[in-house]
């Protein structure tokens, strides 16, 4: 960023995060082509780590505080504490039976109301999307509920001053630069930062911290807007696609088989009209 050093703005930054199933060690079932999900542990949505890192860096540069907020079961406290161990200052868990079954509309509503309750914020920074639901709708949804200017797919923060933030966002074929008045909302992509690892000091701080758990009454939520009742969408059915295709396999051992393999690729490309 390009500001003069030592400029203290005292940012209040809210980072909504989601706890998701860990999938990097998951194996594929070769018959059904689906993930084997038994005994999978829960982690912070990997794409939220970039939002957390971005917020912490802004705080380190301009002063202020970073508050993480998450909607989920009690177990999601782990994700909030992990974010605090990375360097966030506070956390809030939005948890209630009435929140269960929320689609992206109702989830955005609950989180936006939680953020309203925190109040007085300068920035809301979200990950690009969650790796389980993969909708990328909650970040813009929150911005819409809070009526904030929004930059999605943000890849760099260029400057921050005079109540404005200048950012670069990743779009088809290149980047766009836009400027938003604060308070504003960002969703960020991986390019924006390299997340830090949680430290011992961070872990000790997080352990001692009491994380408030807010229900509908704490965030002035209209019960009509919560959970299944508040969700405009309904899941009709869920099914497993069949994706495995056992194709031809050629083993390259020497010059001869190498040529045969390349012949095969050429035939394929020609037959399917790729060249």
């Amino acid at each position: 960023m390009s500001e003069a050093k030592g400029m203290i703005i005292n940012m209040k930054i809210v980072v909504p995060i989601k706890q998701v199933p860990e999938t990097s060690n998951v194996k594929m079932n070769p018959e059904t082509g689906t993930m084997v999900r038994e005994g999978v542990e829960s982690i912070i949505n990997p794409l939220d780590l970039y939002a957390i890192e971005t917020a912490i860096r802004l705080k380190e540069k301009f002063g202020g505080q970073v508050i993480v907020i998450s909607m989920g079961p009690d177990k999601a406290l782990e994700a909030i504490k992990e974010a605090i161990a990375m360097g966030c200052d506070d956390g809030i868990l939005l948890s209630d039976r009435k929140f269960a079954g929320s689609d992206t509309w109702a989830t955005s509503y609950v989180i936006a109301n939680g953020i309203k309750q925190i109040g007085d914020f300068d920035l809301v920074i979200c990950g690009e999307r969650a790796t389980d639901g993969d909708t990328a709708q909650v970040g813009p949804g929150i911005a819409s509920f809070l009526d904030l200017p929004l930059s999605t797919f943000t890849s760099e923060i260029l400057s921050l001053n005079d109540g404005k933030i200048k950012v670069r966002r990743l779009v088809e074929g290149g980047y766009e630069e836009i400027e938003l008045e604060l308070p504003a909302a960002l969703t960020v992509v991986k390019e924006i930062s390299d997340p830090r690892l949680p430290t011992l000091r961070g872990k000790l701080k997080a352990k001692k911290m009491e994380i408030p758990v807010w229900g509908p009454q704490n965030i002035n939520a209209d019960e009509e807007n919560l959970g299944l009742k508040g969700s405009p969408t309904r899941v009709v059915k869920i099914f497993t696609p069949k994706v495995t295709r056992e194709g031809e396999k050629i083993i390259v051992k020497d010059e001869k088989t190498l040529n045969e393999a390349v012949d095969k690729i050429m035939d394929y490309l020609i037959k399917k009209e790729f060249i």
């Binding site: 992990e82 949680p198 430290t199």
Partner: peptide, 15 residues
């Protein structure tokens, strides 16, 4: 200089 703690698959894998 620093102690990093990894107690989940993401961070464990990273270190």
């Amino acid at each position: 200089i620093e102690v990093y703690i990894a107690d989940n698959a993401t961070t464990s894998e990273r270190i």
